[in-house]
Design a protein around this nucleic acid. Structure first.
Lengths: 193, 193, 193, 193
DNA sequence: CATGAATGAGGATTCATTCAT
DNA sequence: CATGAATGAATCCTCATTCAT
């Protein structure tokens, strides 16, 4: 039965695994095709080229982050709670898929310009939800209104991203989600006692 | 006078320029050699291989960050002031050398395992100075003692790194150093009003 | 009405257009199929393989050359007149179908052995009509009997073919048929005054 | 001793042999490199790409045709004699190098546009010497002045080219140079008795 | 008869590295 | 120390052809 899974997602999923295990550089198209159980040429029926696979992986997986955060952003809860859920959501998705975590935190930090641009574009949608929550917080008088919102967003994302990368680079040994409380506290109140 | 500059630094400097302008991928050894004004083969008298050039670039340039931060860490000033200088120092070095900023924030985020490891090793020395300042702050009762010091460090570095990367990716148009006040405030007191 | 045209000729005609516009190299089977309005696989119900399309194109189109020349060869006119009509016929067919002209003069000059052989075989029938006319001319004492008939034929065909190719390569701008008089004269009396 | 032969000509000569024996299509760069006794990559120190090899082969070899014809064109002999030598020269060069003959008459008739253009450019210099001789003949009242000189040139070249191609396609069995007399006669006086 | 998704063999080209001079 | 000509491994992608529907 060919029905099971459309080949597109089959290849995406294979790519995540292969890239996580071999690095983008070590992930020949043939290797991804084999993992996906399709012929090399089949890849090109669904993706323009190799880079397009990576971009699509990011797009598809970022979709999950975005979808859930969007739901959080619209819940009838306080800004503090939304920020808490924001952090927890990010950590949870990464912790639940170690392969994805490697790809997201390490392999996707590609340097070639065109790729970088495409990835940024996708990330922008995710970060615009940060902005939504932050703006609301400022309007409600919960968050500082003296600082540029972009800077607030970068501060939050920087903390979450750096802690995630550290977690991945140290072998994903400890529990990432359990950092949520402390990181949430740091985001809101800073390092000062 | 090229004569007075040992070829080693000549190549390092050439590498920063070439990599910043062409990306690591587009920086063939031949191109770096040409920019440095030496023959291709000469590179290999000073560097083991191409990766070694990148690592050496990072090591040499990180040295400046480390040197200055070490001086700051030992000044007879408060922890708050040290953190202020830490941020300012990082931003200032990047802002003063746009080529270096590109290399540091974008091109060095290489994905290949061996390179990643080497770069982490070098970064560790820089980050250990963060730890020194943080530890002091905790002991003096200035900083939270309820949170793991590694997390505090990641929070600070994450913010600084993310803001720097954003600055580079948006074309280094605005003034980076002038963000110091706000970022310092976020580090200490968080986003909450 | 596509319905009335058997798919075989539909594909042949599509191939002439696609090959003329894209070159043999740029004429993927899929492109020909699309132009013909059939599925890729359908091509293989009518042709053994891609080369077979080209051969069939040549065979079908050469058929027109042959048919008309055969009629000319049997007309009750002088050898000189027959040679005149031979040239005019060749030029007229090419001039009336610019796509065909490109395919015949340029794209069909394929180099691969098997194709070359097949094309020669088809051409042979056309050229045997040249021989028929030439033989008659020799027997009637009109043409030189001192020169091998194959050489005479090659001389005529060489002139016609080269002038046709030049015409195609210069963009088919001038009138090809109007060269008939002069070429006819050259064939009969040579370059000498 | 690497001295013997500059690698450029070494590769050109290898290419002629390999292409003659395998066709352009069957002539992988690796095969040419092997025949030339160099590494694959070395080819690219001397040629921009594979097509450039073919173009260079044609340019180098056409040079011989041109050089010799130029000398003939300037000899103090009659136009008739020059045309005789022109034919003989062409046939002689081809007959003396069977590999070259195959490449020239068959493999070089490539269809891809850019290649075709480059080859035409090179051929033009050779044909301009035809024009030189023809113009002289017309001015001296030896040749017809009623026919466009380009047509005269195409007639001559067409005959020579077609007879050469026939000779190659029939396996280069008979003697090509011995056709000179008859072809010369056809060029000057045509087929008419 | 007709479809078109899937196949997978095949090859030009780049570029880090070496080593004879 | 310095050179730079030569090396050769390594891989993405195309596209003619098949065959299950």
């Amino acid at each position: 039965m060919k029905r099971e899974k459309p080949k597109y997602m089959q290849i995406i999923d294979a790519a995540v695994i292969v890239i996580a295990e071999n690095g983008y550089h070590g992930s020949q198209v043939a290797k991804i095709a084999k993992q996906a159980g399709v012929a090399d040429g089949t890849i090109y029926l669904y993706f323009k080229n190799k880079d397009d696979i990576l971009i699509s992986v990011f797009k598809e997986k970022m979709g999950v982050f975005i979808e859930r955060l969007r739901e959080i952003a619209h819940r009838p809860i306080s800004t503090e709670e939304k920020l808490y859920e924001l952090v927890k959501n990010h950590y949870t998705i990464l912790q639940n898929d170690h392969h994805l975590a490697i790809v997201t935190q390490l392999e996707l930090r590609q340097t070639r310009k065109p790729l970088r641009t495409k990835i940024s574009d996708i990330l922008r949608e995710y970060l615009s939800l940060y902005d939504y929550i932050l703006k609301e917080g400022i309007e409600n008088g919960v968050l500082k209104d003296s600082i540029d919102i972009r800077l607030l967003r970068q501060a939050i994302f920087g903390m979450i991203d750096e802690t995630s990368t550290s977690w991945v680079m140290t072998g994903q040994k400890h529990d990432l989600v359990s950092l949520t409380d402390e990181v949430h506290q740091l985001i809101l109140h800073g390092l000062k006692k």
